[in-house]
Design a binder for these strands. Sequence first.
DNA 1: ACTAGGATACTTGTATACAAGTATTATAAA
DNA 2: TTTATAATACTTGTATACAAGTATCCTAGT
Lengths: 242, 242
Amino acid sequence: MTESTELLYPQKWLSKASTGDRVTCELRMQIISGRIESGTILSENKLAADFEVSRSPIREALKVLASENLIRLERMGAVVIGLKEKEIEEIYDVRLLIETFVFERLVKIDTKGVVRELSKILEMMKVAIKYQDPDEFSYQDVLFHETIIRTINHSYIMMIWNNVKPVMEALILLSMRNRFEEKYDDFARIVKNHQLYIEAIDTKNRDLMIQSLHQNFDDVQGKVEDLWLSQQMLSKGVDPEK
Amino acid sequence: MTESTELLYPQKWLSKASTGDRVTCELRMQIISGRIESGTILSENKLAADFEVSRSPIREALKVLASENLIRLERMGAVVIGLKEKEIEEIYDVRLLIETFVFERLVKIDTKGVVRELSKILEMMKVAIKYQDPDEFSYQDVLFHETIIRTINHSYIMMIWNNVKPVMEALILLSMRNRFEEKYDDFARIVKNHQLYIEAIDTKNRDLMIQSLHQNFDDVQGKVEDLWLSQQMLSKGVDPEK
DNA sequence: ACTAGGATACTTGTATACAAGTATTATAAA
DNA sequence: TTTATAATACTTGTATACAAGTATCCTAGT
């Protein structure tokens, strides 16, 4: 497989990243986007040849992706698992689990600071929409949720977040790029949901928070299937089943 | 630092493990036990010299320990974080989070199989007590909870478990070794709590489950401080404050 | 005495070499 | 034709070499 295909991960996010990190991010995107199909067996040597790097950063990347449940390390080669509907739902479960836990802590502390911070991020998201920059929008979206989580200062919840964050980031990135081209008016709703989330935190309204959290998920999940289909058609022609 | 100190991690659990895994497990135990104090700066070269292996398995170990929040990888060296009270409580949070989630799924499915399996494990735990084998007991204890979690077939919950499991394992291991020497009759209560847990799953009694989960935590947590003190005195003499 | 600058001894990240083990394939014998 | 065996081409795991960057310490100059 020659390297004639373009890179999926935003290069400007990798300005100071190591080769290992670059490989990790790019491989992750290729797996989640479906460019590398699930079931594929990856070999360290082959990947090293494809990426034109040594096995060291490749090994590093595979370890990370395995910890994210995107691949499964076996005796001979790494088997690509990828993200199917089941996995997407599971990630949703985890995110719901994390953020509801976080919310329970948030209602006990002063949230003025974080509300202000979230408002700023939301403004940034609006600007990203205005200038039609899906990558910037995705970055701010992920940052939005990370900011909320970081507030409660819980290192082991943060650990969980750090494990799901890259996958979520990739998922949102792909979804947003797709929608900037087709369903541009979706973004008004997304912004509104985030506004609702901020309000929930500000007023410490538990029900409102759950509601906006679910809606926010629907925003991503609803269009994921479209994404797959387009990606799959792009990569292997037709056959949209199985 | 010459290697005149004995190994903390059960060697028989490492029969087919790679050098990297051995280093990971041993380093984890040394950090959690306090033999390596928090704040210590670890260097790859020094560790490689101490363990008499190359830097490759050391690097692997440090990456894993960093993902478990036991160390923090920085520019020059890895800073040991370790487990203080705060971290222990956080791990407890995560475990409560996971297992309550799991329970909500369990009540919706047939639990005959898992109840039987758990009963078997509990029998094994009793045997381990009878023959005063703290390592075997700890193994079965961890297996008990893993079995519960595995039942719901949720790869991303499993991912979280896989991240906290090694830390919990080490914690339980150290705690149990300590208690086999001093508070032998604690085990009757532990067994009883596990019996309660099984019953909760069998009868799908949510309250009972929460109750036994909390008690089970108290079993571990209650004695953790003793453990620290003994370990700290063992490693650096006196001074039990700060 | 004190500061500036450079040599030195670290650090990590990547590439490469080697060892040991496993799947595959081809060949030879029944 | 089928089966057993041996050679080969993989695989991963570990060790080592090298490059680039950073902290430290020592020296020289003021």
